[in-house]
């Protein structure tokens, strides 16, 4: 089972990707998935302090769990309107 990570705006520019599939690991949280993502894409590390997170389209906290098959979105500071 995978976890799908979505990137937007400056993050997707930096990674050169909009979507990344990672292996699910039992007990995964937003934090643990991000740790693995940043290991694979170190260029994204500097963005981490400013990010918000959404799991399956709902804002969540870094300690919240990420179920198998979930979509985790990394949300840089928004600027709509």
């Amino acid at each position: 089972m995978n976890v799908t990570v979505l990137l937007f705006a400056s993050l997707s520019d930096r990674a050169g990707l909009r979507r990344i599939e990672l292996d699910y690991q039992p007990g995964d949280t937003v934090r643990s998935v991000c740790d693995r993502l940043m290991d694979a894409y170190p260029a994204l590390r500097s963005f981490r302090p400013s990010l918000l997170y959404a799991v399956n389209e709902e804002y969540v906290r870094p300690g919240d769990s990420v179920p198998p098959g979930a979509t985790l979105a990394l949300i840089p500071p928004v600027s709509g309107g």
Binding site: F8, A9, S10, D13, S50, A54, A73, I75, P76, P77, V78, S79, G80, G81
Partner: peptide, 19 residues
């Protein structure tokens, strides 16, 4: 709160506005 981002494009460059 809404996850939308805008990129400004100038004559000589561009930048995502975040925050």
């Amino acid at each position: 709160r809404v996850p939308v981002w805008k990129k400004e494009v100038w004559e000589d460059g561009e930048e995502w506005i975040e925050g």
